[in-house]
């Protein structure tokens, strides 16, 4: 998954950069060197190269990579199906293209992109299926679209990520991804 790649690259880069800063700091504290600041070259190294050029270089590469990854995750192009998601205090309702609805369980075909059209009826919630995609807020009065895709059949936990009141901690649901060819046994989830 690309976001995971992004994370590992950023973690590695951060480790290297923080190690660089800490080592320079340690040497600076230890060397108790002669007061040699009057040489203008020093300022150029510290502020010009380390302070300016290095971060600009690193950050521009990161930004370009990030914009590219973000662009690829956008819901453009056709999706296998679109599910209407409504969040409320304290539950989740999913309505499918065939007109049926379920509460507390979202059923999606595995291996296919699915668009969720997310809204809320009372306060702001946020839909988050940690293993499938980033978050998308459920905001009263507007519909936000999130594209998800489960690589393989299975069950995925999902939570509400935006504080929505006293029931926030238990405001959860489950995603069930079924094999795409199999008959979608849509029983009403017990909630």
């Amino acid at each position: 998954m690309r976001v995971a790649d992004l994370w590992w690259w950023m973690l590695g880069g951060s480790a290297i950069l923080s190690a660089l800063v800490f080592i320079l700091l340690l040497i600076a504290l230890r060397r108790r060197g002669a007061a040699d600041n009057r040489q203008p070259g020093r300022t150029r190294v510290w502020i010009g190269w380390l302070g300016l050029v290095m971060p600009v270089g690193v950050l521009m590469v990161l930004l370009a990579f990030a914009l590219w990854v973000g662009q690829r995750n956008l819901p453009v192009g056709p999706a296998a199906q679109t599910v209407q998601v409504t969040a409320f205090n304290y539950g989740w309702e999913f309505c499918y293209e065939d007109g049926s609805c379920s509460q507390g369980v979202l059923r999606i075909p595995a291996g296919q992109p699915v668009d969720l059209d997310i809204t809320a009826t009372d306060v702001i919630h946020s839909l988050w299926i940690p293993r499938l995609a980033g978050k998308m807020d459920a905001i009263p009065g507007q519909v936000n679209r999130l594209r998800i895709e489960a690589d393989a059949p299975g069950t995925f936990e999902a939570v509400c990520a935006e504080y929505c009141g006293v029931g926030h901690a238990d405001h959860r649901f489950v995603v069930e991804a079924y094999a795409a060819g199999a008959p979608a046994g849509r029983t009403e989830a017990a909630e």
């Binding site: 800063v21 020093r42 510290w46 502020i47 302070g51 950050l59 990161l62």
Partner: peptide, 22 residues
């Protein structure tokens, strides 16, 4: 992302100051 750059300038200016002094 850009806002990190002036912060980096300050961090290295401080380390550079310590480097230069005792």
């Amino acid at each position: 992302v850009l806002v990190a750059i002036p912060t980096a300038v300050q961090i290295f200016a401080w380390i550079g100051t310590m480097w230069a002094g005792r």
